[in-house]
């Protein structure tokens, strides 16, 4: 593979029944490309948590995945409310998910910690009232 492959996903807001489809599509594509299953697992966990966060906390957004010869870069950009305290949000167990969302099984406060743990590099750019962009890299 010489050229980088670029995939784009639009994540719609509040559509819980479709949440996870982008991650599923990426998983299928990586499988077909013959990517190491251990790498796929990391990418899928990180991407799914990010995708779900966009739906639950940020009214959806856009995910751009770039696959190069040595890494997979996932950029998740939303125009949601932003994260007031990133350090706090990154703590295991911290969650602002409302009850109706928790009753679906979300709200453990493990999403962002999982994204950090399963990606090799992660940055969070966020501004209150403007949005959040999370960039994660997983090495191939």
């Amino acid at each position: 593979m010489n050229e980088a492959i670029k995939l784009e996903y639009t994540i719609s807001d509040d559509d819980f029944t479709r949440a996870g489809e982008a991650s599923g599509d990426l998983k299928d594509k990586l499988k077909k490309m013959g990517v190491d299953p251990a790498v796929i697992r990391k990418v899928v966990i990180a991407m799914y948590e990010g995708e779900i966060n966009m739906v639950i906390h940020a009214n959806g957004g856009k995910i751009t995945v770039t696959i190069t010869t040595d890494e997979i870069i996932m950029e998740l950009a939303d125009k949601g409310p932003g994260i007031p305290d990133v350090k706090l949000a990154m703590q295991e167990g911290f969650s602002t998910a409302p009850d109706n969302i928790r009753s679906l099984g979300f709200g453990a406060g493990m999403g962002l910690p999982n994204m950090k743990k399963y990606s090799d590099e992660m940055t969070v750019e966020t501004q209150q009232g403007v949005g959040t962009t999370v960039t994660m890299k997983v090495k191939l």
Binding site: G105, A108, N114
Partner: peptide, 22 residues
Amino acid sequence: LSLAMSKLPADAAWVTVMGNTN
């Protein structure tokens, strides 16, 4: 879900009281 996502072993029978699309 976010715990299951990271801890669920492949090929496991997953027992849960959550039966939704997620």
